[in-house]
Amino acid sequence: MSLMRFGDKSLDLSLPHIMGILNVTPDSFSDGGLYSNIDRALMHVDSMIEDGATIVDVGGESTRPGAALVGLSEEIDRVIPVIEAIKSRFDVVVSVDTSQAVVMTEAASVGAGLINDVRALEKSGAMIAAADAKLPVCLMHMQGAPMNMQDNPVYDSVVDEVVGYLETRAQACIDSGILSENIILDPGIGFGKSKEHNFQLLNQLRTLVNKKWPVLIGASRKTLIGDVLNRPVNERLFGTLGVHASAMERGASIFRVHDVKSHADVLTMMYRIKQES
């Protein structure tokens, strides 16, 4: 058993877990505007849980390439009522996808069980807020910022640099009072990486897994898949499944996805086959 406590719930991370995406934004690359209404958001959460999601990731700031920044009060208004409503209705881990310290604190106060930060707690006050919340944190690597991260990403060695960065941020968390067993790492597929960079990270994912912290992968419908398969955003399911299946084989534990049911089927079968070996 590899149990991690997420607020009022525990999950066994020796099993694959699906994090269903709930963007309460008007401009996310795949589903912007679909769930900004709280009733539609809750219907979608209900469907994702029914399909097999054990975590719901609520985000109020789009981090697609070229996305503009969102004001703090607007982000709070978007995500906090939704998190509170989900926790009052459903028995599920809610993750808050934010880099803002105030949003982390507010989300924890209404029942969020995980802080998922694409900026790895680098923004002012974020590390302190996360430590005070006493919740697990997911630290992601991103080169640059959403506004410019895909302009010209350059690395000497993308695997070494991403793994080294995440290891350094994990140690900073521990030094700030966050328990080592409350850390999850995400290499940030598509965040300041070329197609080749993404392939290298996915191929050598065990380098990150071997650091002994759980690894989250989120490649759902991303440009990497569109570039390889020449498919528009709404036709990237099978490509996404291929990426995530490969990541599971290399030790990833959590999969951040738009399409929950298909992932539940594929990853459950992969897990069962592995258990019989």
Rank of each mutant, 00 (worst) to 15 (best):
V118C: 01
R119L: 07
A120V: 08
L121A: 02
L121H: 09
S124R: 12
G125N: 03
G125D: 08
A126P: 04
A126T: 08
A126I: 01
I128C: 07
A130I: 04
A130M: 08
D132R: 13
D132C: 10
A133V: 09
K134S: 13
L135Y: 10
L135R: 14
L135N: 05
P136N: 07
V137P: 04
V137R: 04
C138H: 04
L139T: 07
L139I: 11
H141V: 10
H141A: 09
H141M: 08
M142P: 04
Q143I: 01
Q143L: 15
G144A: 06
G144F: 06
M147E: 10
M149K: 00
M149L: 02
M149G: 00
D151F: 10
D151K: 13
N152F: 12
N152I: 06
P153I: 08
P153Q: 11
V154S: 14
Y155T: 12
Y155I: 10
Y155W: 12
V158Q: 08
V162E: 01
G164D: 02
Y165T: 03
L166C: 03
T168N: 10
T168D: 13
T168C: 03
R169N: 01
Q171T: 08
A172K: 11
C173A: 12
S176F: 08
G177W: 06
I178F: 01
L179S: 14
S180D: 14
E181L: 05
N182Y: 06
N182C: 08
I184G: 03
